[in-house]
Simulated assay, not measured.
Amino acid sequence: MSDVIIFGLPPSSYVRTALMVCESKGVAYRLQPVDFRDPAYRAQHPFGKMPAMQHGDVTLYEALAIATYVDEVLDGPALQPADPVGRARMLQWVSATNDYIYDSVVRHCVTERFVKPMRGLEPDTDLIAAALPRITEHVSIMDDALDGSDYLCGAKLSLADLFLAPVMHYLAATPEGRDLLPSRKNIVAWQSRMADTPKFDQINSLG
């Protein structure tokens, strides 16, 4: 069967998650950059977001659907716990990342620190300051969850880690992350383990 094609732009944390899933599975893939202004892209993602995926006759959009498909259909190490409780906890963390952590970290900090300056705009430091208590709380929750555990769902890498890792990589590059993260020993150890996953640095430096 043909390679997996991931449609999206490299800076997206969700695109990075999809690429990390493929790498962790050892799946052949290629990244196809997209133009969101092109109506033809709606054939891949009718909501005009990213990522989308094509694998032979199968087309999917949204990172969780893509990650689950790649893990369950293609050969390679399993990225979901085998037991129902473990899978539920994995989905709990994917949901928490998508609904809470992404919002506080990416929308209210990373976008201000990186995206706006690329567009010639000044970061809104008041917005960052207002989000900092939530970011701090979320970082503490993550650090507690990793206490005594190599990964979010136990001893093995799962989709939960692959969703969270690109977001935390971005946070670590901000002034706020440089202040918050070094004292969280469990997160620091986890980030070191994530950095050892296949092509982590290459994927998370794409721009």
Rank of each mutant, 00 (worst) to 15 (best):
D3Y: 11
V4R: 11
V4F: 08
I5K: 12
F7V: 03
P10R: 04
P11T: 05
V15R: 04
R16W: 06
A18S: 13
L19G: 02
C22M: 08
C22H: 06
S24L: 01
K25T: 05
K25Y: 02
G26W: 05
A28Y: 07
A28P: 09
R30Q: 07
R30I: 00
R30T: 03
R30C: 01
P33S: 14
P33V: 03
D35E: 14
D35V: 10
D38W: 09
D38S: 14
A40Y: 07
A40M: 08
A40H: 11
R42P: 04
P46V: 15
P46A: 14
M50T: 05
P51W: 00
G56D: 12
V58L: 15
Y61W: 12
E62W: 04
A63F: 01
A65M: 10
A65F: 11
A67D: 07
T68P: 09
V70G: 10
D75T: 10
G76P: 13
P77N: 11
P77V: 08
Q80Y: 05
P81S: 04
D83G: 13
P84H: 10
G86A: 11
A88E: 09
L91S: 11
Q92D: 09
W93R: 08
S95A: 15
N98I: 14
V110C: 08
R113I: 02
F114D: 07
F114G: 06
V115H: 09
M118E: 14
M118R: 15
M118N: 15
R119Q: 13
P123Q: 08
D124Q: 02
D126C: 03
D126T: 02
L127F: 00
A129W: 01
A129Y: 01
A130C: 01
A131K: 04
P133C: 08
I135C: 08
E137K: 15
H138A: 10
V139I: 12
V139W: 04
S140W: 13
S140H: 15
D144F: 08
S149Q: 14
D150Y: 12
C153Q: 06
C153K: 05
A155M: 06
K156M: 06
L157V: 08
A160P: 12
L162C: 03
L162R: 00
L162G: 00
F163S: 02
L164R: 10
P166E: 02
V167F: 01
M168H: 09
M168L: 13
Y170W: 12
A172I: 07
A173M: 15
T174G: 04
P175G: 14
P175Y: 08
D179G: 14
P182L: 10
R184E: 02
K185M: 12
N186A: 11
V188A: 07
W190Y: 01
Q191I: 01
Q191H: 05
A195Y: 08
D196L: 03
D196M: 04
T197V: 13
K199M: 04
F200R: 02
Q202G: 11
Q202I: 06
I203L: 05
I203Q: 03
L206I: 04
L206E: 09
L206A: 12
G207R: 12
